[in-house]
Nucleic acid binder design. Structure first.
Lengths: 332, 332
DNA sequence: TTGTACGCGTTATCAA
DNA sequence: TTGATAACGCGTACAA
C-alpha cells in the first residue's frame, strides 16, 4: 500500500548514472548541468517517485530561504489576512514558509516562537504577538523578528497607526452627535496601546470626556464589561471596542437588553475581520488592511535577511474606517 | 545585536566537558545521564543560549514524531476548530506539528501536500482536502493521510455523517411547516456529497420534492444562486445551504430583498463556524464538531504511525443541529 | 558515558 | 562547460 522505503537523491543518481551532486543541481535549477542531462535526471526522479527532502536541504543549505510565521490565533480572521499577504510575497520568491500557532491566552506564544527559532528559520514574522517586549527582543537576538502591528524597540516592525484608527472612530461617532462615547480597552501592554491613547486624544480634541472600561480579548468578557457600562449611570450612547471580537461582545450585551445597534447604541470595532462583514451584523469597524501588513512584513523580512546588520527597519500603514450598520445618530 | 554564529550541541558539550551524545540525552530527557550532570548541562546550554536544532533532529531521529497538518483555508473558522483538536492531542504527546495551507480554489492544495511530504512528516492530517480521490491516494502512497470529513477509498478518515446532518436540517424545517425547501449545493465531487443525498432522502421521506440549486463555496456566488431561487417562480420558503459561507450568501440575498430571515425565509447553514454565532446573524446550522474531528484525526494518525500496515482506519462522528434565529415557522 | 556511523542533501574544490 | 569527489550541517542511536 505504501512505499516501504524513502527514495533518496542517491537512488536517482545511481539510476541515472550520475553523481548525487548533479542530481541536486538539476533539481534546484542551478547552473552546472546540461539541459539534456537535467531533463533525464528529472524524468528518472519522477519515475522513481522522488521528491527532495526539505529537512535535509534546510540542514545542508546556505540559509536565507526560510521564513517563519508566528500566528497568534487561527480563529482570528485578521491574522489570516496577514498570512495571505505574507504568502503572496514569500511563495513567488521560492522561499519556504514555516508556521507556528500561539494560543489565545498568550501562554503558548513563547513556545511557538521557540519552535520557529529551532526550526532554522532565517527570520520570523510575528502576527499578533502578545509577549512582553523583552521576550520578543530576546528571541530576536537569535532570529530576527519582524513584528506586525506592534512597535517594539529595536525590533523590525510593520506599524499600523492605531492612534489614527481610533481617532477616525471617535470622529465618526462625534460627528453623529454622540457625546458619551466609551472605550472598551485592550489588555495593557499588548502593543495596541495607541488605540486607547488615540481615543483619549480624539475625545479631548472634540471636547468630550474619555471614559475607558478595561476589558479583554474574549468576547464573553467584553459582553460583561459592556453590560456594566450599559446598566450603569449615564450609559454611553456609543461604545468603541478595541477589536472586533470585543465589539461582538458589546453587541451581545446590547442584544440582551433589547437595544438595537446603530439606533439605541452605536458600536465600532477594530480590525475589519470577516465576522464584522457578516450579514445582519454589519459592524462599523476600522480596517487594519491585514494583507497589506503581511506583504510589507514579508518584504521587511527579506530585507533583514539580506542585510543582517542594518538599522531597525520599519514601515507604517494607515488604517481606514469602514462605516456599516452598527453606528447611527445619537439618540436624543 | 544578534548572535553571529549559531550555538550548537558541540559547543555545549565542549563547555561542559562531556560528549555530544550526553548533551543530546540530557536535552531529550532520555535515560542515561545522572540528574546532576543533566542539570549542569542544561544550565550551560542556557547560559550559551543554546536550543536544539529541530531540523537536524528530524533528519537524524527515528521518525514517528512529526505530524503534518494540511489546512485548506485559514479564513474558515471550522478548520481552526479542527486544528485545535489536532493540537490538543499532538502537543501533549510531545510530537511536533508541521502546517501547510492550501488555497480556497484548491489549486494550491497539491503543492501544500507536497510540502508536507517533503518535510519528513510521518503522517498527514488533511483538513478540507479538495483534491480528487486519486490525488490524495497518490500522496498517501508516500505518507499516510488521515482525511477529515472526507471519505476516500483506502485512505484513513474521520468521517462525519453528512447525511444525518442534512436530515436533521430538513426535518427541522419540515417540522416548522416548510414545504418548499431548497438545497444550495456544494461543488460536485468535493467529498461532502452526503449533504445533498441526505437532503434528497429526507425530503422524499417527508413527502416533499427536492429542489437542488448548484452553487459554490463562495459567498458571493451563493448569493447570486439564492437570488435566482427567491426571484423565481414558486420561491422556496426555506433554503438549506451546504455550508455556512454559502448560507451567508443566502442571507445577503434575503437582505437585499427585504426578507427577514426566520420570518420571511428560513435559512440553515452547515458547520457552526464562528461567523454563524455572530450577534445579529444567529444562523441556524449543523454543528460539525470540528475540535472533536481534529482530536479523532490525531488519534488515528498516531495509530497509523504505530501500525503502518493496518487495514484502513476510520472513525465516525455525528453532527448535531443548532437552532438559532434564522429559522422559523413557514409563512402562511 | 563515549565514540562513531548514520540521515540526506548542499556546496566548495577539482578534473576532464 | 559538464561532471565527480568529498567535506559539511547538527543531531540521534547503538555498540563499546
Amino acid at each position: 500500500m505504501r512505499d516501504v522505503k524513502r527514495v533518496t537523491m542517491e537512488d536517482v543518481a545511481r539510476e541515472a548514472g550520475v553523481s548525487r551532486a548533479l542530481v541536486s543541481i538539476a533539481y534546484r535549477d542551478a547552473a552546472g548541468v546540461s539541459a539534456a542531462t537535467r531533463a533525464r535526471i528529472l524524468a528518472i526522479g519522477e519515475r522513481l517517485g522522488y521528491a527532495p527532502d526539505q529537512v535535509a536541504a534546510r540542514l545542508a543549505g546556505v540559509g536565507g530561504r526560510t521564513v517563519g510565521v508566528f500566528i497568534q490565533d487561527l480563529h482570528n480572521d485578521v491574522f489570516a489576512d496577514v498570512f495571505d499577504g505574507v504568502r503572496a510575497v514569500v511563495e513567488p520568491a521560492r522561499k519556504s514558509l514555516v508556521m507556528a500557532v500561539g494560543t489565545l491566552d498568550g501562554r503558548g506564544d513563547a513556545a511557538a516562537l521557540d519552535t520557529l527559532r529551532r526550526s532554522r528559520v532565517d527570520v520570523i514574522v510575528g502576527v499578533g504577538l502578545q509577549l512582553p517586549d523583552v521576550a520578543v527582543q530576546a528571541v530576536s537576538r537569535h532570529v530576527p523578528v519582524v513584528a506586525v502591528a506592534r512597535d517594539i524597540p529595536s525590533v523590525d516592525a510593520v506599524i499600523t497607526d492605531n492612534e489614527a484608527g481610533a481617532r477616525a472612530a471617535v470622529e465618526h461617532l462625534a460627528g453623529l452627535g454622540h457625546r458619551r462615547i466609551a472605550f472598551l480597552a485592550n489588555p495593557p501592554g499588548d502593543g495596541y496601546g495607541g488605540r486607547g491613547s488615540g481615543y483619549a486624544a480624539a475625545m479631548r480634541a472634540a471636547g468630550l470626556a474619555p471614559r475607558v472600561a478595561s476589558s479583554s480579548y474574549l468576547r464573553a468578557q467584553a459582553a460583561i464589561d459592556a453590560a456594566a457600562l450599559l446598566d450603569g449611570p449615564e450609559p454611553p450612547t456609543a461604545i468603541f471596542a478595541h477589536n472586533d471580537q470585543a465589539a461582538f461582545g458589546v453587541l451581545d450585551a446590547a442584544h440582551d437588553r433589547g437595544l438595537v445597534p446603530g439606533v439605541d447604541v452605536s458600536v465600532v470595532g477594530y480590525d475589519n475581520s470577516s465576522m464584522s462583514r457578516a450579514p445582519g451584523t454589519a459592524l462599523t469597524t476600522v480596517d487594519l488592511h491585514g494583507a497589506e501588513l503581511g506583504r510589507a512584513a514579508a518584504e521587511l523580512a527579506a530585507e533583514r535577511v539580506s542585510r543582517p546588520d542594518a538599522e531597525r527597519l520599519t514601515r507604517t500603514s494607515a488604517p481606514t474606517l469602514i462605516v456599516r450598520g452598527t453606528t447611527g445618530p445619537a439618540p436624543s
